[in-house]
């Protein structure tokens, strides 16, 4: 038998802020940026869509009723698309980390679960901001011209609106135990984007779909982000986004409590 334990006085190793740190956040962001597949969906695909579907509309107006440039409308829509993909994927990564046992490993450290969720949300917001910026840079190079306040407000709308998708990602992440959660989230996101009028104007869709579309979260975020350009800001859209954020956020919180409860 060996001698006494290591001499030591009580040391509290609890970090400040429940373990939230820029070290962790920076590593989280780097993980996503290193993943070629997520880079493609978050940054490249929206930019390519703009070049394919936005550029040909150069010089045209949205429609007869609205003289705003169609190319700007498409750019903002695709910025929303990029931001929502970035946010959902980052939140949904929780499913992978749960499947890999990382969440369990974290419980062997002083990191508090709320600090973990906060890191995920901030990481989602950082990546959606990057996605919006890339889309706007591509758009600006491609010839989108808008007043400065429209750039700013539309950008803020697309960026902050992606919070609802970070909540959606966390919700799905805590719901599904699978590693391949984004495999089935991908098509759902594309469908939501279609309903939200991000790929084609809602007017081209059948009436029933248009009615349904107005209740989807993407429609809300999309119309808020485009409203500085189209001048049709509506409180209904705000209500839509707030409602869905609350729904997914509460759902994620409930599942999160179930997940972190000791059995």
């Amino acid at each position: 038998m060996t001698a006494a334990a290591l001499p030591r006085t009580t040391v509290d190793r609890r970090p400040p802020l429940g373990g939230f740190s820029l070290t962790y956040l920076a590593l989280e962001i780097r993980r996503v940026l290193r993943n070629r597949r997520s880079l493609f969906f978050i940054l490249i695909m929206p930019a390519v869509f703009f070049l394919l579907f936005g550029l040909p509309q150069k010089g045209q107006n949205i429609d007869q009723a609205n003289s705003a440039a169609a190319i700007a409308y498409i750019m903002i829509s695709l910025a929303v698309y990029g931001a929502m993909t970035a946010s959902t994927a980052t939140g949904g990564a929780v499913a992978v980390e749960r499947a890999q046992g990382w969440s369990r490993q974290l419980r062997l450290t002083p990191l508090r679960p709320p600090a973990y969720v906060a890191t995920k949300v901030l990481s989602a917001l950082s990546l959606s901001l990057l996605s919006v910026l890339v889309e706007f840079v591509v758009g600006s190079i491609g010839g989108v011209r808008m007043p400065a306040h429209v750039w700013l407000l539309a950008g803020l709308g697309a960026w902050l609106g992606s919070l609802v998708f970070a909540a959606l990602g966390l919700f799905v992440g805590y719901l599904a135990p699978a590693e391949n959660v984004m495999q089935f989230m991908g098509p759902i996101l594309a469908l939501l984007a279609l309903f939200g009028g991000l790929f084609v104007p809602l007017e081209v869709l059948p009436h029933v779909m248009r009615t349904i579309a107005k209740f989807t979260p993407v429609y809300g975020v999309g119309s808020i982000a485009r409203s500085p350009l189209t001048h049709d800001f509506s409180w209904v859209a705000v209500l839509n986004v707030v409602g869905w954020t609350a729904f997914f956020g509460l759902g994620a919180a409930l599942l999160f409590r179930r997940d972190t409860a000791r059995v």
Binding site: P15, G19, S21, Y24, R31, W102, P110
Partner: peptide, 20 residues
């Protein structure tokens, strides 16, 4: 309990950040 897409040093640094 291990993240697969990070390096050995990264996961150690990350875990270290969870302690004071």
């Amino acid at each position: 309990g291990l993240l697969k897409d990070v390096s050995v040093a990264e996961i150690v640094r990350m875990t270290a950040s969870f302690f004071a």
